[in-house]
Amino acid sequence: MITMVDKKNFLQNLWKNNPVLVQILGICSVLAVTNDLTNTTIMAIGLVFVTGLSSLTVSLLRNKTPRNVRMIVQVLIIASYVVMVDTFLKAYLPEISRSLGPYVGLIITNCIIMGRAEAYAQSHNPVDSLLDGISSGIGYGLVLLMIAFVRELLGFGSLFGFRLLPESSTSWTIMIMPPSAFFVMATIIWIARTPFKKKSEGR
């Protein structure tokens, strides 16, 4: 059963304890795949799938896995799910697979997944771990989508490939290039964390 505590954990992963905004994890892919909302959405769905299922599997095996090989086993589980996502995209969404390039494979190295496996799934029951994985993935996806929204709109003048800004508007080329992800992410982190900071100073 899902307890109140875990509902709180689920919501915290989305915002207050967001893996990207607060824990600053998974930055590499945040910077790499956020200039186009379509790619970003697929990437986020892929990550939700991988974090959810790998946390579930790690949790299912937690009592059987010897401590000294647990990290090898975690990486094996994560890598297997990532390869599944990659193979699925190659077979059924080849266009998107090509534009995401190596970044799907690099989900393996995304610290969020390993982080959740170690910090949560290793010591919680399977259902809670699954939810924790999913919510961390969604938390990551939300930040990705926010960044991609700004970058695609200003860089290409479109959202999900649909032109929204008039043709006469100048596209900000910098928004398409990787550096802009730093600016946009930093701005989002700043805006998102200001309220937390005030609260902690108030104490």
Binding site: T65, V69, V73, L76, S80, M84, F88, K90, A91, P94
Partner: peptide, 24 residues
Amino acid sequence: YTFVVSAIFVALLAFLNAATRNRI
């Protein structure tokens, strides 16, 4: 243990690969 877990996941991936190879 590591060997058994690896074997299971490798088998799973091999199956998936066989199922999608032609389409790819």
